[in-house]
């Protein structure tokens, strides 16, 4: 057998899929920050977290990532795409790019992805659950009902989330997410 016919192979990168995920993470990260101002529930979730709370959500092992933290006033803050050099008490990584695509194309809801063991959680589970609740809410704001209903277990009833609040909230969150204030 000629060993040279069977060379070492370094698998490459899936650039387009990674860009898609990076964009989604950017929007979601900004949207969390915006929702933290607009939505009572999200604001409360962040206020309940520890003072120096920061979490990173991304893809193992080469990213992309988004980093969101809580400022001293208890507000949500998007802290960029780079987790390096930051102290991050909660790291939630999706095991690989393809699993992340399933999550960010909403083929798998957060809870189904958890049940399918797609996430590795490094940090306090109580905090991770709070983050999952926030993500679910943000998805309800960002996505049309048809898609969001797939992404969350229970789509909020109109009574719980008045149409006015939702639509105004949605527009505001979109604007803030894109303009970044």
């Amino acid at each position: 057998m000629n060993y040279d016919s069977y060379p070492e192979i370094k698998p490459g990168r899936k650039t387009i899929k990674r860009i898609y995920i990076a964009v989604m993470l950017f929007i979601v990260g900004r949207a969390i920050q915006a929702a933290g101002r607009m939505d009572k529930t999200v604001r409360k979730e962040f206020q309940n977290l520890k003072d120096d709370f920061v979490f990173a959500l991304g893809v193992h092992p080469h990213g992309p990532w988004m980093v969101v933290g809580r400022d001293t006033k208890g507000r949500a803050r998007y802290l960029g795409w780079n987790p390096e050099g930051k102290k991050i008490p909660l790291k939630m990584s999706i095991k690989n790019v393809e699993s992340a695509i399933l999550v960010f194309t909403f083929q798998e809801s957060t809870s189904v992805a958890f049940a399918r063991n797609r996430f590795v959680v490094d940090g306090d589970l109580i905090d991770a659950l709070a983050v999952v609740r926030v993500l679910d809410l943000v998805e309800v704001y960002l996505l049309p009902k048809l898609i969001a209903a797939l992404a969350v277990k229970r789509y909020p009833k109109w009574s719980e989330l008045s149409p006015v609040r939702k639509h105004i909230g949605r527009v505001a969150i979109y604007t803030r997410a894109l303009l970044g204030f």
Binding site: S111, F114, A115, L125, I126, L129, A130, V132
Partner: peptide, 8 residues
Amino acid sequence: QGDGAKIY
């Protein structure tokens, strides 16, 4: 609300 079993 802080217990993981609720996810599943």
